[in-house]
Design a protein around this nucleic acid. Structure first.
Lengths: 213, 213
DNA sequence: ATTTACGGAATGAACATTCATTTCTGAATG
DNA sequence: CATTCAGAAATGAATGTTCATTCCGTAAAT
């Protein structure tokens, strides 16, 4: 039956090819950096001609932005789907950590790409706004958690997130650069350490003055 | 005696110019990245001709390595000088945090440069070994701290360092990218959070089994 | 006077992007 | 059902640009 032979309507095939290129670009960028990577190797990795790549993306810069949005979106979906952030708990924290871990393990290229410094000079305002879609719900979660007495009151939400995200990235970066190997126990301990960093340490009587050094 | 008339012995002036170039390179690299940055702007920033730059450094790659070693050395000196790492205490931790903070504030270019991902592909074995000079003493400090019961036993030293360094970097990176503004109180709170992450949570009666999630 | 340092135009390699050409696609036709 | 054919898609050699590095005429140092 030819219905399946020509299985893919033109528009669908185009979308697929676009995706192939996106994937290839992510892979090559993660390996060799942004400025460092010529366009032809990306096209080769995707199995298309250079000209074809330029049919799908206006420029290398546009490609970088597309890869960025795509990866960020994937992270977002993976992290937040089916999660009730407005009911924070230790279990929710553990779930977030676990999801972050599987993301870093299953899609290391995306994870690494998102951590690159130098794409920031490339990003369009639209790409930048994509960031907020992840940060805002997390921020709300922290706020609710603080109201609940679950998380420490002292850290402003943005700071708590930066601390936590930084620690997570630091651990996986160290692993990637071979400063470290991580087994499952290590990951649980790291998770608990991060929890201690932001949780509420309620010896309810504490009125500790902070003496500067 | 003409020794003072030509106030700067040739070798000294050369060393100075080398340093000027190093500084300029650090600045420009921190602004525009590694691959992204042409050599001529570096020479211009240093106030020398391109040819001169190549008298002092064999290649752009050699320059990058030199900048890296220089910055790492500065960090090391700033962090560790006159510090007895083998007597860990909360105060020592606070001192380290404070020094890290002043480093990030006073020499933001070095701090940012050291955090770049993409220099790793450039580094010579010698540059790489430079890393160890910082990591090993810190690792020893963690080990002693754990023996003392000051730090949690559970984290292997490398992991504790990665966690702490990652969190610190995450916070300052967030500030640099304008996701965050940090006043002195925020920094103290972040410091305390990091401390909680790695400290020993000794309600001394704890024989807590770690129940898997 | 001779050596050494300097600068910046000149060189060639590597790159992002274009475009003339070829290949594919699928609707229309016999 | 086979053929045709116009338009869409794909291609990679060619183009102009940007870059790292060199080289040589000039200036400073000794």
């Amino acid at each position: 039956m030819t219905a399946v032979a020509t299985a893919t309507p033109a528009s669908r095939r185009e979308a697929q090819k676009r995706d192939t290129i996106l994937r290839a670009a992510l892979k090559v960028f993660a390996e060799s950096g942004l400025h460092g990577t010529p366009v032809p190797p990306i096209a080769a990795e995707a199995g298309v001609g250079v000209g074809t790549l330029y049919r799908y993306f206006d420029s290398k810069e546009a490609l970088i932005n597309a890869v960025f949005c795509d990866a960020k979106q994937r992270l977002q979906d993976h992290l937040l789907s089916d999660l009730d952030l407005l009911n924070p708990s230790r279990a929710l924290f553990d779930t977030l950590w676990a999801r972050l871990t599987t993301f870093a393990r299953q899609d290391p290229e995306s994870f690494q790409f998102l951590e690159m410094q130098d794409h920031h000079s490339y990003l369009t305002p639209h790409s930048r706004s994509q960031e907020q879609a992840l940060l805002i719900p997390l921020g709300m979660m922290v706020i609710v958690g603080q109201r609940n007495g679950l998380l420490g009151e002292h850290l402003k939400p943005d700071l708590a997130i930066a601390l936590f995200w930084g620690a997570f990235v630091g651990v996986f970066k160290a692993e990637r650069l071979n400063y470290l190997t991580l087994d499952d126990d290590d990951l649980k301990r790291a998770r608990d350490a991060c929890w201690f960093a932001i949780a509420n340490h309620n010896t309810p009587d504490n009125h500790n003055r902070d003496s500067a050094q």
